[in-house]
Amino acid sequence: MGESNLSVVLHKVNDIRLENTAIREPGKGEVQLRMARVGICGTDIHFWKHGFIGNLKVASPFTLGHETSGIVSKLGEDVTTLKVGDRVALEPVMTCGRCDKCKIGRYNLCPKMAIFGIPPCDGGLAQYHLHDANLCYKLPDSVSLEEGALMEPLSVTIHAARRAGITLGSRVLICGSGTIGLLSLLVAKSYGASQVCVMDLNESRLKLAKSMGADVTLVPTTKDARGLADEIEQCMNGKPTISLECSGAPLCVQSSIYATDSGGCVLCIGLGPDDVTIPFVDAVLREVDVKAINTYPNCYPIALALLQSGTVDVKQIITHEFKLEQSLEAFELVGRGEGIKVMINCE
């Protein structure tokens, strides 16, 4: 196997490096993985460019990468569910498993939750990585390693659809047509939404959204929240019952509240400024629920089922693929706002 483990390590703001890290042996309940595919996420870019998200800060060097798939290369003690050579997707959320939140299945709210690839935990953008065997999902032959890596953002949108209550006949507005917006489109359609409108300033992304099943698309022409809500209603020939805010832009958060039908739901996925002013009274008087999500409890099995059945085709959003040795070039491309999902091939 050799001594080297080429890894993409973030040291501090604007300081990302390709360097060799240690190859570790799996402990009890762990597997060692030869990493296969890793997607670059907007979160990775934010830590690289700004050094923090909320109270999560880059305080010491760590390996990036939380959208991952790999191939089992070694088994730790007591691992019986996997074998060497198995292709797996890795759920990155690690919790205590014992607190009240974990016990009721909302382990994404565990006070001791950590996410690999999010500081301070090392991620999987490397040649080799260790992971809890219980958080490895074996991929059937019909699911590719690229699709396995995309199970992480797909799970985000599944959790969003469930918390927002998307069901048969829902009219859904999606603000933003990046990775999460486009996957939200696929999931909303698979959950029975009768109409989906995708809104963005990027017309080429909206063209892709249309090809992926969006009923209508909208390029905003105003920066007034009420005016934008009127544009949304006109575009959809009525108000959406559910709005999925994937951009984090304050204007989109505000306009989605105004636009959503009374008794509906605005589900916030995108991360923007720490503080955002919202039309609170309008939401209260019309009983518009404003919700948010954090990661994706119990969603990986659903994501795998959607992929295995062919219900969703996530490969449509992959626009670029780079070798691990080209990772810095890949990050520069994403940092310039190019592409949608950029995939790193670690093999």
Rank of each mutant, 00 (worst) to 15 (best):
M94H: 15
I166Q: 10
R106K: 14
R37A: 02
M1R: 08
I232Q: 08
V13E: 12
L145W: 02
S144H: 02
N20Q: 08
F322G: 00
E3Y: 07
I118S: 02
C265V: 14
L150N: 05
D132P: 01
V72I: 01
G27C: 10
Q316M: 15
R286F: 07
E152I: 08
A305N: 12
L324P: 09
P297D: 06
L64C: 09
I302P: 05
G176M: 10
T241M: 13
D15R: 11
D230C: 07
G123N: 06
L150R: 04
I269N: 10
M199V: 13
L173Q: 08
L173R: 10
G335F: 07
E245S: 12
Q127Y: 07
P273Y: 00
S177H: 00
K12M: 00
C110I: 05
E329P: 03
G337K: 07
Y137R: 03
S170R: 06
L145N: 05
I317E: 11
Y128P: 00
L304Y: 11
I174N: 05
G248N: 03
V156W: 01
I340A: 07
I317K: 04
E203T: 15
N345A: 09
T43V: 11
C268P: 02
L173D: 02
A292C: 13
V334S: 14
A161K: 11
D230R: 14
E233Q: 12
V290H: 08
L218Q: 14
G272A: 12
E203C: 04
S142D: 11
Y191G: 05
S309P: 11
T179L: 02
S142K: 15
N14F: 10
T63C: 10
E147L: 02
T217V: 14
M113H: 06
T179F: 03
V156K: 00
S7F: 08
E152G: 15
C110H: 11
Q195T: 09
C41V: 09
C102A: 09
E287N: 09
R336H: 13
H129K: 14
T295P: 00
L90Y: 09
C102I: 12
I118K: 00
K101Q: 13
P273F: 12
G124L: 00
D100T: 04
G124T: 03
S190G: 10
G339C: 13
